[in-house]
Nucleic acid binder design. Structure first.
Lengths: 414, 414
DNA sequence: TTCTTTTTTTCGAAGCTCGAAAAAATGGGC
DNA sequence: GCCCATTTTTTCGAGCTTCGAAAAAAAGAA
């Protein structure tokens, strides 16, 4: 049983709706917002006036040069870049990428720190993150949110990094640490989920209510959007696609179990097989991108263990996707990361395996898009997560009239 | 971009909220509704008065004898059983179960028709369904919805039975046929989804926002609730858990493919293996419940092919669940149908396999509940689906005041 | 019988959205 | 260069809805 709709909440929701419409449309006119939200001209006029006066939005002359029509020209409205800023960071193996983004979503500043994540102590790792944030936020007064994306299993509610391949430590309190240091709301999310969020913003036609983002890199990750919502099981991890069992008792996986998809399709698995090593060989910690590229080139050129390795990877991925599709019906797939660069080698085998599964009944109709660079995608997803959270929680509840007082009183009581 | 909230829609939603609260609580007082919905006393008083005047709800004296407290006694409110009735039917192998249910959810009448579904022509099957509905609805004027649950793959939007093991025909237009015959809204759903809906109503504490209902019977079916919503992929089928691949290229499945979970854990698979037949043997159409029961008894008593068959079934189920849990995190499981009666034999092997998967990290913590009888569950789920649909679409939009006219005009325009 | 307590209804206030009409801002035509 | 047509945006009054406070109702307790 959800709460009933109160009168003041209606305004709050409609404000949020207007902000969302502007964020999606870029620089819509009031009339365009009317069309998108279904609200009346009068209401949009009132809400827009409020939001402009509060500094959340601003009139931006003519955004795109509208086709010169007769009649009063439309006034474009955009989000005010100075209304807020957010810091987004992506913690991955030996690398901390960090960006400062304005309220519109434009990157203000961008840095990359190299660090040996496996060697750092708990405290050193936390310190590195805190100082990177402090560093990039320095001199920018309006930072209002910090969004963290990370490899591994995150607990979004508690904002912990439960487990990650990049560090031997578990239950890292990234969220609480940042919150204590900066007194700002912090979100902690799995990197693949952030990819999915980004894809949705970048290409809503293709990535609509149901789709899958697969990260093929040293490990295998997945972000799942189902029924129009990011799916994040009970924790924020879910989508442990890479650790579905492909062959019971099969190859040794980084997670210590056997036969996982990742143990056939992760970089380390392809590398291991291509170099003729045993499937029992413990996974190496990292492989240079150039080295994987060289293996792919070799596999393209000649028949041999390299080609076999990629084939086996494709087969594991195909069966895995087929099993997934059996559960959730076929949906568009985005293949992101290192593996996207070698997708030409993987694809035939993926489709062959898919065709043998229930989910792949029309295997040829399933559509893949490849995006080799994952980092910009992940950071963009984190930024949009942070910004939409601001939209809702900071800019929507602030009512301009006295109803505000009422809402606040209620909040204190509850 | 969803539609904005209009003023009249607020009332509509709050009316729906009140109806839902009453349906869940049974016979709440107005004060109890206030507590559940978070709306004010005045609002509840007004909405309740409207709904009672319209005949949707009624005051029902004291529902349960409230503990005699001081003060004005609470007046229990309940749904008016005469406000509507719905017909729910379940079409399964050789059997058509059908019930008439009042608006409160109580069964008024209940019948069971035997028919040889595999032998019937398209038209004969449709006619059988229509005449069964006409039969049970005769003399009950207020039937307002027909809900169909069926084995197989349903297209809920078009209300077709796309494919089913119970008939050689495909794309059966069950929904359109019933709609044409009775001029009533008709819903068509997969049987396992209806089980899940029912479980949620019967035990909301256990079956909350994420859980799994598995039907172990001649075939294997699954209903999935994720993020508090029935998950029904792009069509209403999804959850083809039984056709996830357990062993690539393995045993022959009823679907014609190889290695599906069902080809190890369906009744026909257990029977085939227990009787020492080859895994290549084409699946038989049906097996008597008594015969399966006898096999289970044999497996309990002595080591041998029967026990082996159940073990293999458990192993396939365990790996399948483990792979599912890898994707969606562990969740409570309800095991329904024939297989629930033999769950004592299956469980150890299920847990053993689970423990070898990523999703089964804490295999012993995953909790199973067994419910041997699936039919009442399926019919109850269909009834609740029909009734909540009525709640929303028939009783919530009917505003008592003149705002109604406005909403109707709008609906015509749109 | 009167007082206390709890539930339910009534009543006025405040806020929101809406439709219609007015105002604003521009291009087109003569 | 002026006036009209057209489109966008704002203004204004009406109509609902929710809410809080106070009153009314309906019992048990003293």
């Amino acid at each position: 049983m959800t709460a009933g709709i109160r009168h003041d909440e209606m305004r709050k929701r409609n404000r949020a709706l207007v902000i969302a419409a502007v964020r999606q449309a870029g620089q819509p006119s009031r009339t365009e917002i009317v069309r998108r939200t279904g609200l009346s001209h009068s209401t949009i006029s009132a809400i827009a006036a409020d939001l402009i006066e509060e500094g959340t939005m601003r009139e931006t002359g003519q955004g795109e040069p509208m086709p010169a029509k007769r009649g009063r020209p439309q006034v474009a409205i955009g989000l005010n870049p100075e209304a807020a800023a957010v810091v987004c960071l992506y913690l991955s193996f030996n690398c901390l990428s960090i960006v400062l983004v304005d309220y519109r979503g434009e990157v203000i500043e961008q840095r990359k720190h190299r660090l040996t994540t496996l060697a750092l102590s708990r405290q050193e790792l936390l310190d590195a993150v805190v100082s990177a944030v402090a560093d990039i936020a320095r001199g920018h007064g309006r930072v209002m949110h910090i969004a963290c994306a990370m490899q591994g299993i995150a607990d979004s509610a508690e904002r912990l990094l439960l487990w990650s391949p990049i560090t031997p430590h578990s239950n890292l309190p990234i969220g609480p640490t940042l919150e204590a240091a900066f007194r700002l709301p912090v979100t902690v999310q799995n990197d693949c989920n952030m990819m999915a969020v980004a894809l949705r913003w970048l290409n809503p036609d293709r990535y609509g209510d149901n789709f899958i983002a697969v990260l093929l890199s040293h490990g295998i990750g997945m972000g799942l959007v189902l029924n129009g919502k990011m799916f994040t099981g009970t924790r924020s991890s879910a989508g442990e696609f890479g650790h579905m069992v492909h062959e019971p008792g099969g190859a040794l996986c980084r997670c210590g179990r056997r036969g996982c998809i990742e143990a056939y399709a992760g970089n380390y698995a392809i590398w291991r097989k291509a170099l003729g090593k045993s499937a029992e060989e413990p996974p190496v910690a990292d492989i240079e991108a150039a080295e994987m590229e060289a293996l792919a080139e070799l596999a393209r050129r000649e028949d041999g263990p390299a080609r076999l390795a990629f084939r086996e990877a494709g087969r594991a991925l195909g069966y895995g996707l087929g099993n997934l599709f059996a559960l959730i019906d076929p949906a568009p797939v985005a293949v992101v990361g290192q593996g996207a660069a070698a997708f030409d080698i993987l694809e035939p085998e993926i489709r062959r395996a898919l065709a043998e599964t229930a989910g792949g009944q029309h295997a040829e109709a399933i559509s893949f898009q490849t995006l080799p660079k994952e980092v910009p995608l992940i950071l963009h997803g984190a930024a949009m997560t942070a910004l939409t959270s601001l939209d809702r929680e900071t800019f929507a509840p602030g009512l301009s009239t006295s109803a505000n007082g009422r809402a606040e009183r209620r909040a204190h009581v509850a």
